[in-house]
Design a protein around this nucleic acid. Sequence first.
DNA 1: ACCGAAACGAGAGCACTGCTCTTGCTTTCT
DNA 2: AGAAAGCAAGAGCAGTGCTCTCGTTTCGGT
Lengths: 249, 249
Amino acid sequence: MLSFRCDARYAALVTGVRARVRAELTAEIKAIARRQIAEDGPANINLRAIARELGMVSSAIYRYFASRDELLTALLVDAYNDLGEITERADAAVAEVDPTDVEGRFVAVATAAYAWARAEPNQYLLLFGTPVPGYSAPTDTVAPATRFTSVLLRILDEAGRLGARPVVVPAVPPGVPDDLQRVRDLTATAASDELMLAGMQVWTALFGAISFILNGQFRNVIGDVDAMFAEFARMLARQVFPHESDARR
Amino acid sequence: MLSFRCDARYAALVTGVRARVRAELTAEIKAIARRQIAEDGPANINLRAIARELGMVSSAIYRYFASRDELLTALLVDAYNDLGEITERADAAVAEVDPTDVEGRFVAVATAAYAWARAEPNQYLLLFGTPVPGYSAPTDTVAPATRFTSVLLRILDEAGRLGARPVVVPAVPPGVPDDLQRVRDLTATAASDELMLAGMQVWTALFGAISFILNGQFRNVIGDVDAMFAEFARMLARQVFPHESDARR
DNA sequence: ACCGAAACGAGAGCACTGCTCTTGCTTTCT
DNA sequence: AGAAAGCAAGAGCAGTGCTCTCGTTTCGGT
């Protein structure tokens, strides 16, 4: 969404008008689909409705996306990139002031992710809700999906450099260290097994909290869910990144 | 699923054969739908396929469930009851040995919930995945949904009696105490605001971990996700129920 | 024991979906 | 300039949830 205009202009220079209108139409299809998702949920994108809105016949859509799943994949990639970019910025904003403020960086990232999820609940659900049945995300989705996790891993890396240890020190199960080493190699980070495991626990907790709030599990229970989430984020940060004077277990 | 045979027999005594075959057919429809959900996910139950399998015509199904959503609701209630019953049993098994072993009780409940989710991933997703769009769970689903949370609340209640405080003590946001008091009144429990808030955070974390594992977010990253979850459960328990000798923050 | 009322299954049908295939037309490449 | 590729349109297929009507079967009150 952020870059299709550039794509279109680029295409116009390199190739002819056909390529340009193709890029524009592709972007329009995606835009309408995104709106459909926002309104009716990820499961309810409707190719025929998109075609109708564009004044086309439904079969024409298939020139641009081979199937409904392919359209979904494109939107998935965009959503991962949006979330990745937003959290990268949130982290950078704190890190450029004080890169060692790992608690602040985590809270900023969590808050940014939450704000995005609240603003675009159905896009969030597209990423972290029930996977569409029979649909397995192709390999081109993994790179954008990694962006967000990379942000967290960099914070963990910095925390490791500072000698932080989680409040509740995990007992690393056998076999897991090899998996974690592979992650370290791939991401060029160096946090300890304990820190990474705690980080992953907090990562799942973060998305659990967002999902619960989004799915309305706290409806009629907690009024100010935003305030509750803010406190959850602070607690999570403290659980992985205690001040060094604190006792741990 | 656990009780439809009894329902059928009961109906046979109280009313005639028509009521019995109705109860049996209702149960059969639900059983087939449950199998469909297990195979193809919650979004893909198919009334016509159910009718075909029963040798009926599709319109006949509507004598038993007024719509697809109503069928879904019935399955939702069953799933909530299954999860509630399983976790109640897991808690009771530990509690009858030592009711004050709140950490053990929590781990038992978490483990049981995870085992159920792994065995019936799509049923779990029916409860905690993306809500079906345009579908708002009617009021008859809230009672069974409360069963599981009640288990957690009773553990928190016991922990409060023992004087436990979470490792990271939450700063209770303004407004939230009123909400929590309402929960205490409704459930006849008496845990402190801090303990309840920490409990809710851990509750969301628990489901976040299960959802992440179920959705395959750790695929190609962590091999032994079961072991990882077991450790997560232990960490979560420790975060809310530290041993009283431990320092807290 | 009977008879009106209610419940039921079958069947046809409606509006809708994703998707395919063919048919002409237009842009692009050589 | 002509072949090749890209394109929109239209018809059509198989499938869905759901509605309505029509005989038949069962139930409940008299």
